[in-house]
Design a protein around this nucleic acid. Structure first.
Lengths: 261, 261
DNA sequence: CACTACATGTCGCCC
DNA sequence: GGGCGACGTGTAGTG
């Protein structure tokens, strides 16, 4: 059964004992507390006293969250050396990263709730429709970009960069394709242009196609100026195609196994 | 006095009631629970059941943290529409962002701890030695970059971007300066080049200087190829200068007030 | 609201 | 271990 300790308004002595134990045992540690925070390392920061949530994970990462925003106001990445001690009538938590010589210090004035728990969690996280999956969809369905397009290679090295796809269009022109999951800005256009201009030195008819859900205004004008092309891509459509492909794949698997049986 | 509710192993009914109330009142809501997570929006993801920490902040942002890593495995930014309901023998929390049509769904099987608290926190967060403070040092001490350099403007708009400083060197050449707090890679070089190339169209002698603690190898070669320059910047030296400047400033303040007295 | 640039970004991949 | 780029990046500043 899962270990769980939780206590409302523990004493500083209890906090030192329980948090030390919790960190040592590799439990998740939660503190709702009034604390101040000092950080020094790659940058440095100071934060006076206020109510915050402190989270220490089994990988010895630590976060201090204020009442708003997704980001922690202060933190220390996994692998920090975490110590807890009593400093007069307060509790001090230090998180130190030796290699970066980074220090995070929490001075805790008052503890509202302390919780410590062993998290049991072996589930796999499945992210769908990231850039890798987009590649798969395009690889199997190049007609999404242009009718008759034939992909000749992926992750093609061009000079010092890598273009997503090289291909040949229906008229036999060489085509470079750069895929972006997000609306593209001018930087993506320049990236594609770098690859295309390298190849245009030898064969001037090389086409460059930028593929993305949408293109920003500044990028559009740069694109046309550089004689490149843009192709809109519906992410939801891609997801649907991917799902359909997976079903076909599992059907094939079924046939395979029923043939074996 | 601060509102605080915390309960070990509450029923689903209690969770629905208390979390709804907590979100409505603008409290911080914490759930240590066994849950599964489905996300759909800019991308989509699935995560099976496991023990996780759920945090809902007063700004109606929500995070789901697993046992390791600084990043939440799933989240929804501030301003989400958060609903809690009972679904058979489980609790469902939905966080929806109408504009992006993004949905996060948590199906909670078991609740270990529920806490809800009003966070009182008005402290100011002071970040030292970020890029803004670096700007101040360079503005007041342009000789750190180059003897005789005279800064003519900061945050100068160049075409579609903004260069950190424009300046004139001792020989009267126009100079663009880009400042980076971190060791620079090729992206920073490209950024500077973008600004410089815009201006070189009209006056080819424009210089571009990248200022940063250090430069990565790939960035160095790109830099020289593009006829740009690099200037190392000692962050600790900058911090020292900033401190010294602050002392001078406070001395001036002292004089000011003693003169008034 | 859109676009740009910053971040103690963090994280994973590849060399 | 360092370099490099993606991220559902988030966040602030600006027009």
């Amino acid at each position: 059964m899962s270990y769980l300790f939780t206590k409302r308004e523990p004493t500083h002595q209890e906090v030192v004992t329980e948090v030390s134990k919790s960190v040592a045992e590799g439990h998740l540690t939660l503190l709702l507390s009034r604390c101040s925070v000092d950080y020094s390392g790659r940058s440095s920061s100071k934060l006076g006293f206020g109510d915050r949530l402190i989270v220490i994970k089994p990988d010895r990462s630590i976060m201090v969250h204020r009442k708003s925003g997704l980001d922690a106001v202060n933190w220390q990445p996994p692998g920090s050396v975490i110590t807890v001690s009593q400093e007069g009538d307060k509790t001090m938590i230090k998180a130190y990263r030796p290699k970066q010589r980074e220090t995070l210090q929490l001075l805790i004035e008052k503890i509202y709730v302390l919780s410590s728990m062993r998290l049991v969690d072996d589930a796999r996280f499945d992210m769908l429709m990231d850039e890798k999956e987009l590649y798969q969809v395009i690889l199997r369905h190049p007609e999404m970009i242009e009718e008759g397009l034939r992909i000749t290679s992926s992750q093609k090295e061009i000079g010092e960069g890598i273009a997503d796809f090289s291909a040949v269009d229906v008229k036999g022109n060489y085509v470079l394709v750069e895929v972006k999951k997000d609306p593209v800005g001018p930087d993506a256009v320049r990236q594609l242009y770098k690859y295309v201009s390298d190849l245009r030195k030898t064969s001037p008819t090389v086409r460059g196609i930028l593929v993305s859900p949408s293109i920003k205004k500044a990028a559009r004008s740069l694109l046309t100026a550089l004689n490149l092309e843009f192709n809109a891509l519906d992410l939801r459509e891609c997801a649907a195609i991917l799902e359909a492909d997976k079903e076909i794949f599992s059907e094939k698997l079924d046939k395979h196994f029923s043939a074996e049986a």
